[in-house]
Amino acid sequence: MPLPASPSLLPCVLALDTATERLAVALQAPGGPWHLDAEGGAAASATLLPQVKSLLAQAGLGWQGLQHIAYGQGPGAFTGLRTACAVAQGLAYGLHLRLLPIDSLLIVAEDARGQSDVVADESWAVAVAMDARMDEIYGALYHWQAGCWQVLRAPALYTLPAWQAVCLAQPVQAVAGSAWAAFGERLRRPEGTDAWLHESSRAAALLRLAVQAAARGEGSDPAEALPLYLRDKVAQTTAEREAVRAAAGVPAPSP
């Protein structure tokens, strides 16, 4: 559903995401919105709560003023997903609020839409591919129409050839995400597509999705909060790493 026209009609929402190397915190409140995009990665667990408190202070808002808490559910970095989920879950328990889990790849799609000239009533399909390391991709397909997002293909873990086949089978107008630049010529963009390879403001895109979810009346019990990992195994053996290098035509390092 489209967002209400007046900021005063929007629900008060705190949104957090640490699924990537960037930390995103955003707040919708009277006088806002407020957005913060900062370095994340290994530091996210130590800096997330201080950044949240800073944003609340800027808004002149106390914890009790919050109505909804949203978090980037994943897929993404293993430790990062746990950080945002745990902080959001703890706050929701303490404040007796429901949680809004947000698809972390949809955040990338929404950021790309924000950078483009796509209007509310336009039909626009985008392929989101994020570098999942280990020569794999987190990929998903989304369709923007009538002011809303639809999921054409839910987030999943792909090899490069498998993802290439998905993109060729489903017509899209744009691609977005870190994988297109990370894999270079090994990952060909569908012909005629626009490319949004760098995010403008992950926090702003996250907040737009969170406010929309809150306005639709969505929400889940904090006890049900779980990250979306997609990968149980987070490291490769030496033999597996060598097999990946060989398949890519990369010589093994010198002893």
Rank of each mutant, 00 (worst) to 15 (best):
D121E: 11
G147R: 10
A225G: 02
A154D: 07
L141Y: 09
L160D: 01
P171Q: 10
R186C: 05
W124C: 01
F183Q: 03
R241Y: 12
V128W: 08
A169F: 14
W124A: 03
R202V: 04
G177E: 00
A120H: 15
P171D: 07
A112G: 00
H198C: 08
A132S: 08
Q164I: 05
A214F: 13
V166N: 14
T237S: 12
E110D: 10
F183D: 04
R113C: 08
G147N: 06
A247N: 02
A176N: 14
Q150P: 00
R231K: 13
W144G: 01
A120M: 12
V175I: 15
P190Y: 07
Q115F: 03
T237R: 06
A146S: 14
H198E: 05
V244M: 11
D194P: 05
A235L: 11
E199I: 12
A205P: 00
S178P: 01
S116I: 06
S116T: 08
V244H: 14
W180N: 03
L197W: 11
Q164N: 08
I107L: 09
G139C: 05
E240R: 00
A120I: 08
A162W: 06
G177M: 02
D232H: 09
A235M: 10
D121G: 09
A140T: 01
E122M: 06
V118H: 12
Y138K: 03
A165S: 14
D221P: 01
A223T: 00
Y138L: 05
D232M: 04
A239M: 07
T159M: 07
R133M: 04
A109T: 03
H143K: 11
C148Y: 09
P222W: 15
V244K: 15
W196V: 12
V108W: 11
C148M: 08
E185Q: 13
D232Q: 10
R113Q: 09
A169L: 07
A203W: 07
Y229G: 04
A235I: 11
V166P: 13
A127K: 07
H143E: 05
E240D: 00
W180K: 04
L152R: 15
S201F: 08
K233Q: 10
T238H: 14
S220W: 15
L207A: 09
E191D: 03
R216A: 15
V175N: 00
E136Q: 14
G184D: 06
E136D: 06
A210P: 05
V244W: 13
D121Y: 12
G217K: 06
M130S: 14
A203N: 07
A129I: 02
T238D: 06
A243T: 12
E240F: 02
D131K: 06
R202C: 05
R113A: 09
L226P: 03
A112D: 00
R245W: 13
R186G: 08
A182I: 08
A248M: 11
Y142L: 01
L141Q: 13
T193F: 01
E240P: 00
R153F: 06
A235W: 11
A247F: 03
G139V: 05
R189T: 11
W196F: 15
A162R: 15
Q173V: 05
